[in-house]
Simulated assay, not measured.
Amino acid sequence: MASVKQARHPATDEITLIDVMGALNDPIRVGLIRVLADEREHGWGELRAPVAKSTLSHHLRVLRDAGVTRTRQEGTRCFVKLRSADLNARFPGLLTAILDAAHHDDVGSHVGLADDSPTA
């Protein structure tokens, strides 16, 4: 019987500022954290970005490896959630500042959820 490979998530005290900032140097990844800031866990299939599925998977892996998100596999489905509490414990106020700046500068607004309605 084959075992499911579990993704490695850095412990809170292993999350570094350089890794977090490096992971957030792409507008798609900033858009993903804007979507995930609702504090809900989302299936990968719910996420919409103007990139191929393999590229979206890469972006999600970068965020996970940096400690920005947590990924959970359930059967063949994967779920992702923003690690807000861990990031706020490690870098108080950083996540809020990033989300505020992203909203102000309209970074990542082209990323959303499958059930998002287009705005007129």
Results as ranks from 00 to 15, higher is better:
33 I>Q: 02
62 V>W: 05
47 L>K: 10
44 W>G: 10
52 A>Q: 13
26 D>I: 02
34 R>V: 11
73 Q>D: 09
42 H>C: 04
71 T>P: 00
18 I>S: 14
47 L>I: 15
71 T>K: 11
33 I>M: 06
79 F>M: 12
21 M>S: 10
70 R>W: 08
30 V>Q: 07
57 S>A: 14
79 F>I: 04
29 R>I: 01
57 S>W: 10
19 D>Y: 00
66 A>V: 00
23 A>D: 07
78 C>H: 14
81 K>T: 14
85 A>M: 07
88 N>D: 15
52 A>P: 03
78 C>W: 13
42 H>D: 02
28 I>L: 08
46 E>M: 13
79 F>A: 10
39 E>Y: 07
23 A>C: 09
87 L>F: 07
79 F>P: 06
73 Q>T: 15
44 W>R: 15
53 K>G: 14
45 G>A: 13
84 S>E: 15
61 R>H: 08
89 A>L: 02
35 V>F: 03
32 L>D: 07
86 D>I: 00
74 E>K: 14
91 F>C: 05
74 E>P: 00
67 G>V: 05
92 P>R: 10
77 R>Q: 12
41 E>D: 02
61 R>D: 13
68 V>W: 01
66 A>S: 10
57 S>M: 06
87 L>N: 07
55 T>Q: 12
29 R>V: 01
25 N>S: 11
83 R>E: 08
50 P>L: 03
42 H>G: 04
86 D>Q: 13
63 L>H: 05
93 G>C: 09
18 I>L: 14
48 R>H: 04
41 E>M: 14
87 L>C: 08
32 L>C: 06
54 S>V: 11
66 A>Y: 02
84 S>K: 14
71 T>G: 01
79 F>V: 06
47 L>D: 11
55 T>A: 14
37 A>I: 08
52 A>R: 13
57 S>T: 12
39 E>M: 06
29 R>S: 01
87 L>W: 07
62 V>D: 08
96 T>Q: 12
94 L>M: 15
78 C>D: 10
19 D>M: 01
84 S>V: 12
26 D>C: 11
24 L>E: 05
74 E>A: 13
56 L>E: 01
77 R>F: 04
72 R>A: 09
95 L>I: 07
26 D>Q: 12
80 V>F: 07
59 H>M: 06
35 V>Q: 02
72 R>H: 06
63 L>Q: 02
45 G>K: 13
57 S>Q: 10
90 R>M: 03
40 R>A: 13
42 H>Q: 06
92 P>W: 05
55 T>N: 09
77 R>M: 08
36 L>V: 01
64 R>V: 00
69 T>E: 05
83 R>N: 08
92 P>E: 07
46 E>K: 09
74 E>T: 12
88 N>H: 12
63 L>E: 03
94 L>P: 03
38 D>V: 09
20 V>M: 02
37 A>C: 12
29 R>H: 05
44 W>A: 10
91 F>W: 10
37 A>H: 15
45 G>M: 11
69 T>A: 11
21 M>I: 11
95 L>H: 09
81 K>N: 07
87 L>H: 09
93 G>R: 09
18 I>F: 13
96 T>N: 12
81 K>Y: 01
57 S>L: 09
77 R>S: 13
34 R>L: 14
65 D>Y: 01
18 I>C: 08
42 H>F: 04
71 T>C: 04
27 P>R: 04
62 V>F: 03
46 E>F: 05
33 I>P: 03
